[in-house]
Design a protein around this nucleic acid. Structure first.
Lengths: 252, 252
DNA sequence: ATAAACCTTTACGTTACGTCAAGGTCAAGA
DNA sequence: TCTTGACCTTGACGTAACGTAAAGGTTTAT
């Protein structure tokens, strides 16, 4: 099934302008544009729009949503579970607010007056946070946009060339890791080479280099299961090997 | 109890900048400013802020909130009941959305796939509307900002002078109505005089005059209980008298 | 007495679109 | 076949509700 802007807009309850805007900021691109330049959306885009709207409902800004969805670490299933949690939390807040209105009504009817504190219960929504979003924000704050969003070249202001160079490096690292784990030592020559590759890869996404930050990032590769899963996808132990290699490299 | 910007902000969960902004747009003014220019808020302002936040939670924009709260037709009790309805409606939508996530999770786990329609259930929030807000929007659309918000001179771009002149006219109308109901006939000389006064009052809030619109507005004075209540507050039957007087005036 | 933690105004920046304007496309009916 | 109305396109400017930074005055605590 193919959808034009209007059709998808009506299906999802968003305006045409919104879809054009999402196209513009590379959040949701049409499957293709036909000969007259019309945007045509297909199943994949519909599903992506649904994901976008889930995040939006929870107050995540579009830039962050893009980063999350385009991250190689993105896992739809995990995201959905996380949405569920956040929505349930939101419902709790809403219930608090409803209680608040009811108490306020009661107070105007001569019930017991409310404390000023209680008058604002249910408004402060600080605690609601989609876990996926929290994760993104944290890493982003600590390590910059690039790390979580390395797949999105435009986002990082990389040229076509730079992007493929960075991607090539990432591939080399993954291959080398797959071969090295269990055979080489992280502190050895091959470990150093891999750490050096990783340093070069990182240079595309970090404005400046420091050993400490590099080591810190490496530490996260084993500390956070999502990064671990990413690096271990081809070979178990790869994340740990990389961490150790970078640690040794940074110590020297 | 007196609150500074920071203190009220923390109590209510809003930023200092927000409170300054609300001051700037005349949505929430401090009770007074002290010798050093600090904004000081007291009980009345705290309660008004709570009202503001209730509306905001329901997606009403600040300009509309101002219009509603400053309207002579505003009734806190009714507003609170209306909030309650809207919040309950919102909860329903949230429940739909939670169902949606759960079905989506089930679908990824091999449950039955979702239709594209169903993927967006719970997002379209078109139907949630605080009744008070709806009322405001409708009247505003039909009759312009002035009618619902006649008390807010700044909002209408009236000068100090123009405002007091309009207010004086409004008082005259009310007084004349109180005396006329039951004694005079709407179609008579006094009815015509009152209708004429009303026309002059209206000229402060409407850019142009037409008999039809005037008669339409008069019709609303009896059709909508809130306007009826406003005009009938000094003398029962005043709204109806005014309506009939204007109708006769417009027919001629 | 001095620093920290407030407060002020001014002013520019941001997000996620809404809203024209000026035109090209397409299916349906006269 | 021609036209009309409902689509579509790309600019480009407007907006709401603040965030944020700058430059400076005030209050409180040590």
């Amino acid at each position: 099934m193919e959808y034009t802007v209007k059709q998808l807009g009506e299906l999802a309850g968003v305006s045409g302008r919104t879809l054009r805007y999402y196209d513009q900021i590379d959040l949701l691109k049409p499957a293709y544009t036909n000969d007259s330049g019309y945007r045509i959306y297909k199943q994949k885009e519909i599903d992506r729009l649904q994901q976008i709207l889930f995040y939006k409902e929870l107050g995540v800004d579009l830039n962050t949503i893009k980063g999350l969805l385009d991250s190689p670490l993105y896992d739809e299933k995990r995201a959905l579970l996380s949405h569920r949690e956040a929505l349930l939390e939101k419902r709790k807040q809403l219930d608090l607010l409803i209680r608040n209105v009811e108490l306020t009504i009661a107070a105007t009817e001569g019930g017991k007056p409310m404390s000023n504190q209680d008058k604002f219960i249910g408004f402060k929504e600080g605690l609601i946070q989609d876990n996926e979003d929290k994760f993104g924000k944290e890493i982003r704050k600590k390590y910059g946009d690039g790390v979580i969003n390395a797949s999105n070249a435009k986002f990082m202001g990389l040229s076509e060339e730079e992007y493929s160079e960075a991607e090539e490096l990432a591939n080399q690292i993954n291959e080398a890791l797959t071969l090295a784990v269990g055979k080489e030592k992280p502190e050895g020559a091959e470990g150093r080479r891999i750490a050096e590759l990783h340093r070069r890869w990182l240079s595309f996404y970090w404005p400046s280099y420091s050993k400490e930050a590099h080591a810190g990032l490496a530490e996260m590769y084993v500390a956070d299961e999502r990064f671990t899963a990413y690096y271990d996808q081809h070979k178990k132990g790869a994340a740990k090997f990389l961490r150790d290699a970078i640690a040794a490299y940074a110590r020297k």
